[in-house]
């Protein structure tokens, strides 16, 4: 049963790592803006030639 001491130690260590990760995220401002990144990831990187693609997409509807 002594293995429990080790297991509990590990489980708390793991939880502490998650807590530290949350602190880091909070400090580095990742929770400040919860809306814009969701929109930003939908933008296409390439600008040239894309205009035509998107316009023609709309016409398929």
């Amino acid at each position: 049963m002594n293995i429990l001491y080790l297991l509990i130690g590990f489980s708390i260590l793991l939880a502490l790592i998650f807590l530290a990760a949350f602190f880091w995220a909070s400090k580095s401002g990742q929770n400040d803006d919860t809306y814009t990144p969701a929109v930003r990831m939908l933008f296409d990187d390439e600008v040239q030639e894309k205009i035509e693609d998107i316009k023609s997409d709309e016409d398929h509807v």
Binding site: F43, D44, V47, Q48, K50, I51, I54, K55
Partner: peptide, 8 residues
């Protein structure tokens, strides 16, 4: 080349 502005 910022015409995408009108595409979104």
């Amino acid at each position: 080349n910022l015409g995408n502005y009108y595409a979104y």
